[in-house]
Amino acid sequence: MFSTPGLLYRARDVGLQYPGSDGQSVEALRGVDLDLNVGEFLSIIGPSGCGKTTLLKMFSGLIVPSHGHFLFKGEQLEEPPEGIGMAFQDPLLLPWRNVIDNVLLPIEVLRRPREKYLPKAMELLSIVGLEGFEKKSAWQLSGGMRQRVNLCRALITDPVVLLLDEPFGALDAFTREDLWLVLQELHGRTGSTIVLITHQLSEAVFLSDRVLVLSKRPGHVIHEERITIPKPRTLDTALTPEFVDHVGNVRRRIER
């Protein structure tokens, strides 16, 4: 349908209506337009119930829009395509497995050779600061460590795009900031495209190349904030006037 180099996703006039539990039809999204380039870090922010998670599920192919076009590599998504990595707020580790076996779960599911991916798993674990924890049982880890393992598991397959649904929402502020740096490092090293759903303004600005603000339900894009602060960013970056300006711009657009 199009052949723009570097363009990974394109959404045009995307809407989603589905029958609600009371028989009335629910309209989650209406008229969403967006583009996403390869290697870009995009955050989507908006009031709760605005359809952020629904939109993320469209990126993954788990939900198909009832209106408009949602294209991945130029083709309408009908089902999850190859090359998707996902991570949620709940790390969803398998507690009976150790760290390395949790990271390698997608490899098993895809029936790829485990030995081939073992070095990659070790490398990812060392990037997120979990070197030496390979054999620890998942249930023995702290919340922050579990979320690190979760990120490694999402990245083990070398996904084209990494979809994150409020991955740090349940963590304390310090752990969260640590993980921003971890995620930035992972983005820099793997070069994968990342879509992040969050309700934290500074998180969105810190990590992203672009922040999209969604309106109240039915959600559509009402503001696009390009974050031009050079990368890699440090935690001190969050104190610069430039950063604070970006946060302010986004905050003013959010409908309450």
């Binding site: 993954s60 788990l62 190859e82 996902m86 398998l94 779960l105 599911v109 397959t157």
Partner: peptide
């Protein structure tokens, strides 16, 4: 967890695989 099913679906896992790797343990 429903999110787990979603993650497994994006990996194109079959129901049998989810049953074997996740459900039974």
């Amino acid at each position: 967890e429903p999110e787990f099913w979603e993650m497994m679906r994006t990996l194109r896992a079959s129901r049998i695989q989810v049953l074997w790797k996740v459900g039974i343990p």
